[in-house]
Design a binder for these strands. Structure first.
Lengths: 213, 213
DNA sequence: GAGCTAATAGTCAAGTTTGACTACTCTCGA
DNA sequence: TCGAGAGTAGTCAAACTTGACTATTAGCTC
């Protein structure tokens, strides 16, 4: 599961047609540079790669009026749309232990319908429960826990993360069930991308202490 | 922060002298293939790279009696030891949001003295608190929360992770302060690596549902 | 004693990520 | 009017990661 691909497909799709710099700005707007590896190099690479694979269609465009080199604009293809929804559904369901995948899914979940999102999140909770069960069974030595020494703290951390992750997911389900947010097919969608010339209120400004790298 | 480097340096250091396959086995023993990108290719790559950079010293060895190609054995250098402790301290202190870094730190923390580990973990809690403060201040629009729409759930998730992460760290501090585990300079250390011919009780056997990839 | 599987020990090409760099235009103050 | 800085748009080499592959020996079965 490549987070970059999901994010880039999602951004291009919401624009209809977008060039790399626009995608880059959207991801910054979503804060993706803070919680994922959304850096310029990765974004442009993903665009080119997915164009080569037929998930995006590339249009060569003359240099923009705003300066800079000639740009390439991308549109999502049918194949790309399929890929997008596949990745999106997986990001909301799978328990990956990598928080960036879920974050990306949250940012794009409104592209699905409310009922489906609820079902996917329920499935997520179920998957976490199952993972927890298998992992605790598997890693509990016959001699009883504690045989692992400090190495056991690693498992302890995973399990704790799983538990709090499940709890958080359940709370999210309640918020969504309670009517929060606007999902696909529910009228005017929340504006998730920046319009031309619109400024990003959450731009990466001064770094604040503790920023992720 | 490269988790692989920390893990590989830690494994070589605990052995005194080790070849790639031994390191590979240690990481499997620690379960690292489940919660980090510790795959053969990455491990051998890290060994070679760190040998080139003078963190490890490589000895060419004739083919082993147990079959297989000629092996290379590695010893950690002074520079490598410095690097190791630097990475280890950082892994316990920094709030990276990538759980694999902390997991690696937990597995190797007993190479430090108890008091230092306690200080590092205290520092970690402080860093999380600071990160939380700056991020909530920074991402709260003037118009009040809720302006972000569903995008706000991403921040909500981070903050929740930060809070539960801090809580878990505090509990760990209490366990360690209470005398759990054997740290550097406290006598017979816990056996953290496999001896020659010893079998791994936690080997990657049958995959269990929900396994990470 | 031939053939199969498991374990040992590692290589390699293809793909991905990173961080620094290029090159151009607009704006605004001195 | 000139030049510093900010914004626009993207490239590139170096490093890293991935998954599949190679080659050898030991032990077992038929």
């Amino acid at each position: 599961m490549s987070v970059i691909r999901l994010l880039v497909l999602g951004a291009v799709r919401q624009h209809g047609r977008a060039h790399g710099y626009q995608v880059r700005n959207d991801l910054e707007y979503w804060g993706a540079h803070e919680w994922s590896n959304a850096k310029p190099g990765s974004i442009y690479h993903a665009l080119k790669q997915m164009a080569k694979q037929g998930l995006l269609h590339a249009h060569e465009i003359a240099p923009s009026t705003a300066g800079g080199p000639p740009r390439t604009e991308y549109e999502i293809t049918e194949k790309g749309t399929e890929e997008f929804f596949g990745l999106l559904r997986a990001s909301l369901t799978a328990y990956d232990q990598k928080p960036d995948v879920l974050s990306a899914g949250l940012g794009l979940m409104v592209d699905l319908e409310r009922d489906e999102v609820l079902a996917l999140l329920e499935e997520r909770v179920r998957a976490i429960r199952e993972w927890r069960k298998s992992v605790t069974e598997y890693y509990t030595p016959e001699e009883g826990p504690g045989q692992l020494g400090h190495i056991g703290e690693i498992m302890n951390l995973w399990v704790h993360s799983a538990d709090t992750g499940a709890e958080w997911t359940r709370a999210l389900i309640e918020r969504i069930r309670g009517g929060a947010y606007t999902f696909a097919g529910e009228g005017e969608p929340f504006v998730g991308v920046l319009g031309e010339g619109e400024e990003n209120p959450f731009a990466a400004g001064e770094r604040h202490p503790g920023d992720l790298d």
